[in-house]
Write a protein that binds this DNA or RNA. Structure first.
Lengths: 219, 219
DNA sequence: CACCGTATGTAAAAGCTGTTAACATTCAGC
DNA sequence: GCTGAATGTTAACAGCTTTTACATACGGTG
């Protein structure tokens, strides 16, 4: 990537450090990562990063953003590859499978994303992947409008006061997000195949999604 | 806890270190934690811990076990406080709410538990909390036997070959576990109330659980 | 083009940490 | 009581984060 280490000034050290840090974390994990390594890999001294980042956590925060961006791109691609042709439910499941794939392929990135709950920072990048799912749920709800409810659950209320479809999409997407995220986490800790070796995250996701969607829209 | 720092030998340093580490992590987080602090808090020198633990990760692993034990106790208590009298579904939800409470009250413990997916260690403690949920699901399935299926989904297969109820309980409990774990994680990252301020983890859990259970057993 | 403030790099150092090695003390069993 | 094992201390090393003082390049202004 960086070809000419000749000049005194690096030229694009800020980005190069993020890339270097990302590569190191992807291969050696976040505990092994040191700012010294990242600086060396970028071809500068160990103090140079402090011209661009307040401290180590600040740099890690930017790597986290990169990771969330990668997740978004994976989900977005999965969404487009499964749009319309197949059913809307299959599109939702495809997005979930892409989420699980990302957690598997970039497992160290995935861990980094959910480390140390940040105090208040709400980056838009962090949510962008979520909105891919929201859009798919909206499409699903358009094709599967709610039926009249005979259920004493909250759906009766929703039907009674004609909820904006957007709020319902957000709620369902949140539940699906929680489900797939939990499956990804449990899978990473080898907690799924402990009893039922056939119970992998992919099939669990598929059946759970169908259940949730059916129940949430048919109530 | 430790009262007499007089004798050369501590007497119970191995446990005292876990407790000290747990307290430090609970108050200052896992990144701030140092083995030196834990040793000082236990009243010994900074090299003493290495007589009982191979390295820092080894000590942290034991703290993790303590955290999983605490989670188990919380879930077990919630299970017993909500057994029989209320419906079996309510018992399941009570367990889930206890899970969310634990994640909130012991948020640094909760983060520690899911950090750095361990390579192969499968401690029984880690799973004990899960079995509380499995038992509740089994009780639910006993009270709500599966109906004859007209669904082309996998439930037809299950019904056809008379699945052992235990396998089904494990599968449903796993799905519920993933769901509640995902909700806990998203809540910790302030990702739930970003749009719908009324959508807290507790209510989302309640509605999702009902949906999943209804759909999974009514299929 | 010369000048100068600013941005960006280096070098050195302080202070902390994890970890090990050599040594000291206590315990437990014979 | 003696002896080996268990447990603790001190000292030291290497590596890391972060700061400070200094060096170099860039960019705009006269």
């Amino acid at each position: 990537m960086s070809s000419s280490p000749r000049s005194y000034h690096h030229g694009n050290l800020k980005d190069a450090l993020i890339v270097a840090a990302a590569e190191l974390i992807d291969s050696h994990g976040t505990t092994e990562f040191s700012i010294t390594d990242a600086a060396n890999r970028a071809g500068v001294s160990n103090a140079a990063p402090y011209r661009h980042y307040k401290d180590k956590q600040d740099l890690l925060e930017h790597v986290r953003e990169l990771a969330f961006l990668g997740l978004y791109e994976a989900l977005d691609q999965a969404s487009h590859e499964n749009s319309e042709r197949h059913g809307a439910a299959d599109q939702i499941i495809a997005i979930g499978l892409a989420y699980l794939s990302y957690a598997r392929d970039k497992k160290r990135f995935f861990s980094l994303m959910w480390e140390h709950a940040p105090p208040d920072t709400d980056s838009a990048t962090k949510m962008s992947g979520f909105f891919v799912l929201v859009d798919a749920v909206s499409a699903y709800l358009s094709n599967n409008p709610l039926e009249a409810s005979h259920n004493p659950n909250e759906c009766a209320h929703q039907a009674a006061r004609q909820p904006p479809s957007e709020a319902l999409s957000l709620r369902i997407a949140t539940q699906l997000w929680a489900l797939v995220h939990g499956l990804a986490t449990l899978e990473q800790h080898n907690l799924l195949t402990r009893f039922d070796t056939a119970a992998n995250a992919d099939t669990l996701l598929s059946t759970s999604c169908h259940s949730l969607l059916k129940s949430l829209t048919e109530c």
